[in-house]
Amino acid sequence: MKVPVTVTVNGQVYQREVEPRLLLVHFIREVLGLTGTHVGCDTSQCGACVVLMDGKAVKSCTVFAVQADGAQITTIEGLARNGQLHPLQEGFWEMHGLQCGFCTPGMILAAYDLLQRNPNPTDEEIRHALEGNYCRCTGYHNIVRAVRYAAEKLRVQA
């Protein structure tokens, strides 16, 4: 069985026929070739696959592509606008919020979700909001600083 889906990813509309069992993360990575979204586990925990679906962070390994039919998806590739890094991307760079880089796209998009709701989070709130994203390299110390950096910058911009 194949099912047609139409998904807008980073502003571009894609129409494809997919098996219903195809996970959104594989649709993004393999059908569309956008490999910035990663797969780190198989139990919906690590958060390497987080993308924004209709503006909210979701684990794309736990969504079927058919569920995203009609949705707007933002992946890490779509976060910078006109060559301008998003403050979160900038924050991760400035504060050394990444080492191997594998968890980074999911981490940034989960943090994006947080800052939408809470533009001025405490360290504790940042840590709590990122509990669905594992990082094995940084000990999270600089990730917290990166998110704080972005929050400050976004507040100034707003």
Binding site: V50, A57, K59, T62, E131, G132
Partner: peptide
């Protein structure tokens, strides 16, 4: 429940 991305879905 779960974590924020899980709670979104």
């Amino acid at each position: 429940i779960g974590d924020p991305p899980v709670r979104n879905m």
